[in-house]
Write a protein that binds this DNA or RNA. Structure first.
Ligand SMILES: [Mg+2]
Length: 276
DNA sequence: CACTGTTTAAGCCGTG
DNA sequence: CACGGCTTAAACAGTG
């Protein structure tokens, strides 16, 4: 009876890549979202080997976060202090370890450059929008408290605030770099200043072309039921999570040509959870 | 300054 | 042997 994932390697180096270690950390976090320091902490907690030479392996870890497409930076909410972003797994990267093994893979996970561009743009746009709303709120508060000095912003707050947001570091305005083949900017309607609404899918986005929705129980759907490695959650939960918090990667409930269940999710049978 | 993030480069190692 | 996944080192910029 093989015991796949036991966290007792003592001072021996665990047989896991930095990609695997980082994925483990992210996956075992409640929100599948961790700042860099927490990724470090998880690895050091679970694997004593990584309690020494921290500067060296953490450099390698950071290299992996940047270099590998499977890891994605999620900007911090502007109202929350702290340095650095959160890190998560690309929504299509949870099955990058075939057969549930965390060991060396045959193919590394990659996404096309265009999709990277689009995702990055949307993420940055969402961030800019958060900043705009945040500053808008701040100025409004100021104006209400001291109308004599700040009342003028109430009239054209949006324009002023947008201009301010463009200048106010450290948050940059909407990214000037556009996807190579995208001709039209995705213009998002203004919406409430909450994570849920900001990150929610744009209403009435264009219909998907050439993308066939997947029926529950269809051959394709069944093919998708190949379980990822042992996860402390099920596939549906993860898909729902990403559709809620990272819709940048989805398009009408689909990612690329891969459908993501929205309404009647099928059951995915994941193996028993490794208990940390 | 310490931490975070990106990038380039070299080398190791298993597979076809 | 070439190729690709992965590791390690290091230069460097940005940020709190
Ligand atoms: Mg990355």
């Amino acid at each position: 009876m093989p015991r796949p994932l036991k966290m007792s390697y003592g001072d021996q180096k665990p047989p896991y890549s930095y990609i695997s270690l980082t994925a483990m950390a992210i996956i075992h976090s409640p929100q599948r979202l961790l700042p860099l320091s927490e990724i470090y902490r998880f690895i050091m907690d679970q694997f004593p080997y990584y309690r020494k030479n921290t500067q060296k392996w953490q450099n390698s870890l950071r290299h992996n976060l940047s270099f590998n497409d499977c890891f994605i930076k999620v900007p911090r909410n502007v109202t929350k202090a702290g340095k650095g972003s959160y890190w998560t797994l690309h929504p299509m990267a949870f099955d990058m370890f075939e057969n549930g093994s965390l060991l060396r893979r045959r193919k590394r996970f990659r996404v096309k450059q265009l999709e990277k561009d689009i995702s990055n743009w949307k993420l940055a746009a969402a961030n800019t929008e958060m900043v705009t709303h945040y500053l808008d709120d701040q100025l409004t508060q100021l104006a209400l408290a001291d109308p004599v000095r700040h009342g003028h912003v109430l009239g054209n707050a949006t324009a002023a605030v947008t201009a301010a947001a463009a200048q106010m570091s450290p948050y940059k305005a909407a990214p000037p770099i556009l996807p190579t083949t995208v001709t039209q900017l995705p213009v998002r309607p203004k919406r409430a200043f909450t994570i849920e609404s900001l990150m929610a899918p744009d209403p009435a986005s264009s219909p998907s072309e050439g993308l066939v929705p997947m029926e529950y129980g269809s051959a394709d759907a069944v093919a998708m039921e190949k379980p990822p490695f042992n996860l402390p959650f099920n596939f549906n939960e993860l898909a729902a999570h990403y559709q809620l918090y990272l819709p940048s990667f989805f398009y009408n409930g689909q990612y690329g040509n891969i459908p993501c269940y929205q309404k009647t999710p099928p059951l995915f049978h994941n193996g028993p959870l490794p208990v940390f």
